[in-house]
């Protein structure tokens, strides 16, 4: 490792930028982080962490099938992501099994199907990069897909920003004043599936749920305003991605894991020192002892 070259912060930051793959990884991961961070506020407030986990794992067979058929993998992932949610809803309604159990068994079933398919369909699918992400090895067609999906999600969320907030906060009122709650429910699920699809390129299927909940949870500890929460969530997600990629470059660590670990550390920092909701309440510390 070139230990001497990051003696200065300047070269720590600039040296990786001389590599084409690093510039691409930093840009793409920031974009993906921003999208997931944006959505994260809604998922955290709606209490959909488990749903996020379910959707992100369930896209696995979709990715494999799409690769095998030569289709854009986001299409396969999207179909299986939404399909898993529909199946969860169906089983929940038609049986007496509790919701969290249904979610758990459906997504593990889908995930297992994906793993079996990978072993059966002998192709050039890199299981490791699906499971753990490969932001450094992202291909040009993946870049186009990622940009397209990211823009789509950001546009949808921006248009229905306030309706989705109302839907998360008080769906009964939304329904009472004639807002289409059914549509908002599936809009949020669609965005969740799409975000999981782009997120898995950065950190992989197993960890993508972190991209979808940790930034929102961090922001939730830092503010009482919804708009600020969204901004903080997006920023913390982007910063984590940048930190994760740089750290993984210099110390030769798994990139996806580094990104998620950076998010976790930012969350822990907020958990300990958030001005109002942290356990040490920074404000009080600054005020001095009296």
């Amino acid at each position: 490792m070139e230990l001497c070259s990051f003696l200065t912060l300047d070269s720590f930051i600039k040296d990786p930028l001389t590599h084409e793959f690093m510039r691409k990884a930093l840009l793409m991961s920031s974009l993906v982080a921003a999208v997931c961070g944006f959505l994260s506020s809604y998922l955290t407030l709606k209490g959909w962490a488990l749903m996020g986990d379910a959707v992100s794992h369930s896209v696995m067979p979709g990715v494999v099938v799409a690769y095998a058929l030569g289709l854009p993998f986001s299409l396969g992932a999207f179909i299986f992501g939404v399909g898993s949610v529909a199946l969860i809803g169906f089983i929940k309604q038609k049986s007496r099994v509790k919701e969290d159990t249904v979610i758990g068994l459906v997504f593990t079933g889908f995930f297992a199907l994906g793993i079996v398919l990978v072993s059966k369909i002998k192709s050039n699918i890199d299981l490791h990069s699906i499971l753990f992400g490969s932001p450094l090895g992202i291909s040009l067609s993946d870049v186009k897909q990622t940009i397209f999906i990211s823009l789509l999600v950001v546009i949808l969320l921006s248009i229905f920003r306030k309706d989705l907030m109302l839907y998360c906060f008080d769906p009964r009122h939304a329904k009472t004043v004639g807002i289409n709650v059914f549509f908002l429910h599936y809009l949020l699920l669609t965005c969740l599936s799409l975000a999981a699809v782009v997120g898995l390129q950065s950190v992989g299927i197993i960890l993508v749920v972190a991209m979808l909940i940790t930034p929102g949870a961090t922001a939730y500890l830092l503010t009482d305003k919804f708009d600020n929460m969204t901004v903080i969530s997006v920023l913390s997600a982007i910063i984590s991605s940048l930190i994760g990629i740089y750290v993984s470059f210099w110390f030769d660590l798994e990139t996806g894991g580094s990104i998620v670990l950076a998010q976790t550390f930012i969350f822990l920092f907020a958990f300990l020192f958030a001005p109002r909701y942290g356990i040490f309440k920074l404000k009080k510390l600054f005020a001095g002892y009296k």
């Binding site: 906060f169 008080d170 009122h173 919804f226």
Partner: peptide, 27 residues
């Protein structure tokens, strides 16, 4: 208009009085 029970809403939701009341106009 539906006025929920206090227990029926998430009191920790990051939203202000103004924003809640404005939701009455959304429709």
């Amino acid at each position: 208009a539906y006025v929920p029970q206090n227990e029926g809403i998430d009191s920790q939701f990051p939203i202000s009085v103004w924003d809640v009341v404005m939701m009455g106009r959304y429709g």
